[in-house]
């Protein structure tokens, strides 16, 4: 409050505008939740706070069973991709930052150059690969293209370069093998970067659409975004059901954010500046 009372009028205006802008930013999200709490007869009533809030839509959707399955599919895939990225991107980033060996520059440039290849160019060959090896409609088929990323590798390499060699040498003198040194000594030193990588990978896989859409044919294997898209087409006008589905897809990331806000914002800043 003191900050506000001391402020010049210009600052008060700026603050008010920022606040109003912020409200506009979250309105679609609020509207989505509010509509999900209305029954079909109240949808046309555009009040933000429903006159008679009901959880019926959520009940209907969860009883349908498909959403639960899609939710778990998405969760499993996002966790798997995150674990794999933290492990491999960390390992490769570390190797490229801390080892001197023939071919190092080549490997680094090769991995970096894949940043320039758009996913859209690869989906056709990936699809052919997946159908040739019978990976269509499988978790592996959805997750395999994203097990490692050049972005993550680059990010981790940047961070490992700031880790002093002395730490690692000390561990070598203690007789630890290289794998243990990386896992037990080096990795804990870059936890902020690892968490940034984890947040990005999880979010990216949780919201991914085009590849899961292409590779999954059976409803049991849909991820949440793919399921939501086909569910919404199927519902056509039942906006309250569509909003409920959308809310279910959005809720987990929002909840996680509310709990870990500072952490996530710092992670995004780190990744954005170094990546």
């Amino acid at each position: 409050m003191t900050a506000l009372s001391k402020a010049r009028p210009g600052r008060v205006v700026a603050w008010t505008l920022l606040f109003l802008g912020g409200i506009v930013m979250v309105t679609p999200i609020l509207f989505m939740f509010s509509t999900s709490l209305k029954d079909s007869s109240q949808v046309f009533d555009l009040r933000l706070v429903p006159a008679e809030p009901t959880l019926d839509n959520y009940r209907t959707i969860l009883e349908d069973g498909r959403f639960l399955r899609w939710f778990l599919n998405s969760l499993f895939i996002a966790v798997l991709a995150t674990v794999s990225n933290v492990f491999f991107d960390g390992l490769v980033g570390y190797t490229l930052a801390k080892f001197r060996f023939p071919g190092r520059r080549l490997v680094f440039l090769a991995i970096l150059s894949t940043l320039m290849i758009p996913t859209e160019m690869l989906v056709i060959p990936w699809y052919l690969m997946a159908s040739r090896f019978g990976w269509l409609d499988s978790y592996w088929g959805i997750v395999f293209p994203g097990l490692m990323t050049a972005f993550g590798t680059f990010l981790m390499r940047q961070f490992f370069e700031t880790v002093p060699d002395d730490f690692l040498e000390a561990a070598r003198i203690d007789g630890l093998n290289e794998f243990t040194i990386w896992w037990k000594v080096a990795m804990p030193l870059v936890t902020p970067a690892l968490s940034a990588l984890a947040i990005f990978t999880f979010l990216g896989n949780w919201t991914a659409f085009i590849w899961p859409l292409i590779v999954s044919t059976r409803a049991e294997m849909f991820t949440l975004p793919v399921g939501l898209s086909s569910f919404s087409v199927e519902q056509s006008v039942a906006w309250e059901m569509i909003m409920t589905g959308a809310a279910i897809a959005t809720l987990p990331t929002l909840l996680v954010f509310l709990v870990l806000q500072r952490f996530i914002v710092r992670g995004v800043m780190l990744a954005g500046l170094k990546g």
Binding site: V26, I29, F31, T207, P225, G245, A249, T250, T253, L254
Partner: peptide
Amino acid sequence: FLPFLTTAVAMAWV
């Protein structure tokens, strides 16, 4: 920052 955490498919329908 909140909108950044939403799923594009969900918000497209909203």
